[in-house]
Amino acid sequence: MSALKALLIRDMKLAFRVGGGALIGALFFLIVVVLTPFAIGPDLALLSRIGPAILWLGALLASLLTLDRLFAADYEDGSLDLIMTGRAQLELAILTKALAHWLTTGLPLVIIAPLLGLLLNIDLAAMKYVALTLLAGTPALTFIGLIGAALSVTLRRGGLLLAVLVLPLTIPVLIFGVAAANSAIIGPVPFGPPFTILCGLSLASLVIGPLAAAAALRHGLE
């Protein structure tokens, strides 16, 4: 357990120090959200209707694009070999790295989302629910993105190819995340069912993501 704790602390330190990418994801999120009104016009009624969708798309892109280097950096400096041969189970080590990534990139997104909701004219009472869907849904994005991050090490290739491979897998999360957020604002569906399914997706990806990423690393790095 202490090995995993050390890994968590190391990854979070690395993310916040020079060269780490902790807040870049949040900055990217901010820019995506600010760009959208330029594309569709400053119509406040329209913005408040599609606001949750914009926030969700921004969060999706921000969390997947920052995952690109999760294992690649460790592979280059050799620490991935240590993690793989270490005492901790590889799946758990990967889960720990994912948790560190979510705490340094996913959680900041959730925290600044209410501020961005102001820009998109989302009602403050509803914004609580939108932030809640992001809190429940962004871990799923991180765990799905893990698979892409592991493959980018074994394929020695990142960026667009991985986005192409991983983005279709995130469709269910996007559907239920936006549906739950919208149901809090415009209805007519109650908030409960889509939100519960969203939590279910997060839990399922918590299992599938680390398993698949560990398999990718084991089979790819031999």
Binding site: I147, L151, T154, L155, L165, I208, A216
Partner: peptide
């Protein structure tokens, strides 16, 4: 390399 990566993606896709 490609086929092992593709195999994992195919299975994740199947789920």
């Amino acid at each position: 390399r490609a086929s092992r990566a593709a195999a994992i993606l195919t299975l994740v896709g199947a789920i």
